[in-house]
């Protein structure tokens, strides 16, 4: 009898302690949520106060511009196919900027990622400097490099390509080196034992293991770079972004062409996203038909 009450006292104690713990955690969560809400509200208030036009004043006008563009495009709908054709070369340039930059960035990123992976790097003392270099390349927004290069090299696709390639190097370098870390070292050791040099060990021992994941990251980067390439065009680096700014800044009467560019850009992004995500799914999850033979 005494023992049972003893037990129930112990259980009560445990329950009390548990409830106290739960309560403390709930209070902590509540404080965090209140703090977060306060930050969001004051943040929006600050941003609203520092904006040229207020949020509530502007809210009614949000649809004005799309309505203008849409209206003008409808009015001259018969010209739209012509415009789509007219801006196709610019679109191709935008896609090419992204493509070339992704390729160059992927090649440099792959090389730097191998130099930055423990166990694979040929010079271990280089690992830290290379990682910091990748951090810096990743941190600098493309637009910064592009604007400086436009001053040096003049407008056109090359500054945008270099800027995006550098950023891609930083971003891919980090991701690829994380993939490399998971690669099994056994093939590398095997190749080393038969006298393969570093580049042979990497090409034959590591790359076949990591290639699907690498490719999937490169494809993802290509999606991102198409958007970046359009944006850089807007600040003067060729491609469809440049045309978009011209049609917009010449004001009246050009919105139908802007609409055509919007359509082209939207379709490109959607198509590339869909294709690349299908490909990536196949690379990382699905069994591709080539898997049996390779």
């Amino acid at each position: 009898m005494a023992e049972a009450s003893d037990n129930s006292i112990r259980v009560d104690g445990i329950q009390l302690a548990y409830m106290a713990q739960v309560r403390a955690r709930r209070i902590m969560n509540l404080i965090l949520i209140v703090l977060f809400a306060a930050l969001m509200f004051s943040g929006f208030a600050t941003a609203d106060a520092r904006n040229a036009g207020g949020f509530w004043d502007g809210l009614g006008n949000v649809l004005d511009f799309p309505a203008d563009v849409f209206g003008e495009a409808m009015e001259r709908a018969h010209l739209l196919p012509g415009y789509l054709l007219k801006y196709l070369p610019s679109l191709l340039e935008t896609v090419n900027i992204a493509g070339a930059a992704t390729l160059l960035g992927a090649v440099m990123g792959l090389l730097l990622s191998l130099l930055a992976t423990r166990g694979l790097a040929p010079f271990p003392w280089l690992i830290t400097p290379v990682r910091r270099l990748l951090d810096i390349l990743r941190a600098v927004p493309e637009i910064v490099i592009a604007l400086v290069l436009i001053f040096l090299l003049g407008g056109g696709p090359v500054p945008a390509m270099i800027a995006i390639a550098l950023h891609t190097t930083g971003a891919l370098g980090k991701l690829l080196s994380e993939v490399n870390e998971n690669a099994s070292l056994k093939p590398v050791e095997g190749l080393e034992s038969v006298g393969a040099n570093w580049s042979q060990r990497m090409a034959l021992g590591v790359l076949p293991q990591v290639a699907p994941n690498h490719l999937s990251y490169v494809l993802l980067r290509f999606e991102i770079n198409i958007r970046a390439s359009a944006i850089l065009g807007f600040v003067g680096a060729g491609g469809i972004g440049y045309d978009l700014r011209n049609t917009m800044s010449w004001g009246q009467g050009k919105f139908d062409e802007a609409a055509a560019i919007f359509v082209l850009l939207f379709l490109t992004i959607v198509v590339v996203d869909q294709c690349s995500s299908a490909l990536r799914n196949r690379l990382t999850h699905g069994t591709s038909p080539s898997k049996v033979t390779s």
Binding site: A47, N51, A52, G53, F55, G58, V62, F65
Partner: peptide
């Protein structure tokens, strides 16, 4: 582009 036409330049946009 669309939002800056409605709200003007600034952090809110």
């Amino acid at each position: 582009i669309v939002l800056s036409r409605a709200f003007g330049p600034g952090p809110m946009t």
